[in-house]
Simulated scan of single mutants.
Amino acid sequence: MRYLSLLILVVSLALSACKKDGVDTDYDKSYSAWLSFKKSSNNSYSYIAYGGSWVGTHAESKITVQNGKVVARDFVFSHYAQGSTNLIVDSTWAESGVTLNTHENGFDALTLDQVYAKAKSEWLNVNKDANYIYFETANEGMISTAGHFPKNCADDCFTGIKMKELKVYVKEIK
């Protein structure tokens, strides 16, 4: 009986030492950074989702979130001047209120809660043998890139999000 008690104690200590604390993934660390930012910003922020093509086109959507709801989406489509790093704007539009999500082009109007959920369930949850998987956290520990690129694709096959300029939203007083 004494050995059984000692064995139970040793097994209990061993199992309690195997907590998840030391094995957080980059996603988990980033998600924690997001939750901290969400609280400190009162869930009001903006970010720019962007992408480009090997042919020189470039698109950006600025998503503005106030109190956890998308309130605006601004879009710019441009191309690089031949032999230059200068972008030439081809089209722009802005949505808010009743016009929100009325344009077909542009990046989805997602909150960061939705971005993290989609990253976890779709963009990063793919066959690793068939895809290159990207997850970067250049936005103060929060997502800057999350997605995948099929290994058998030549170009323009990224599925996911590339994000920059994540900042606290402060409503302008007019």
Rank of each mutant, 00 (worst) to 15 (best):
S121G: 13
N125S: 12
V55K: 09
T99M: 08
T64C: 06
P150F: 00
A14M: 14
T137Q: 00
L100S: 08
A72R: 01
E104P: 06
I8H: 00
V23D: 09
K151W: 08
N67M: 04
Q114E: 15
S32I: 10
H103Q: 10
S30I: 02
T111Q: 05
D74K: 13
I143H: 03
S91T: 15
E172I: 06
W123T: 06
D28I: 10
E172C: 00
G97M: 00
V115L: 12
S53M: 07
A94Q: 11
K174T: 09
V168Y: 12
L124N: 04
A17H: 06
V98R: 05
V10H: 05
N101E: 08
A109I: 04
S32T: 11
S61V: 02
A130Q: 15
L7T: 15
K171F: 08
K20W: 08
Y134S: 07
K20R: 12
A154H: 10
L110K: 03
S32C: 11
L9A: 14
S32A: 15
A81P: 00
E122A: 11
K69V: 14
V89Q: 14
C153P: 01
T111K: 00
D24K: 09
S84M: 03
M142D: 01
N105I: 08
A117C: 08
G83N: 07
K174R: 09
N42Q: 13
P150Q: 10
K39M: 05
D108N: 03
V70Y: 02
I88Y: 10
E95C: 02
S41Y: 10
Q82N: 12
S41A: 15
A109F: 04
W34Q: 00
E140N: 14
T159N: 15
A33K: 05
L7C: 12
N127P: 05
S5L: 15
L112Y: 05
K29V: 13
L35P: 02
P150R: 00
T25F: 05
R73I: 01
Y116N: 03
K164Q: 12
V23C: 03
D21A: 05
L166Q: 02
K38N: 09
V126L: 09
N152A: 11
S5T: 07
L15N: 13
S5I: 11
F149I: 01
S144A: 13
Y27G: 03
K20H: 06
W93C: 07
F107N: 00
V76L: 10
S30G: 14
I48F: 07
V126K: 09
F135K: 00
K164L: 01
I173G: 07
V170R: 04
L166G: 01
D24V: 05
S53R: 11
V98C: 05
Q114N: 12
V55P: 05
A81Q: 12
T25M: 11
S121E: 15
Q82E: 15
A138D: 14
N101Q: 13
L13D: 01
D21L: 07
V168C: 10
K19A: 07
S96T: 14
A109M: 07
K118F: 00
L112S: 00
L9T: 14
D90C: 04
Y50I: 03
N131K: 02
Y132G: 04
N101Y: 00
Q114T: 12
A130R: 14
S44M: 05
L35T: 06
D21E: 13
T57V: 09
K171N: 07
D108V: 03
Y27W: 12
K120W: 11
V70P: 01
K151C: 07
G83Y: 14
N125A: 15
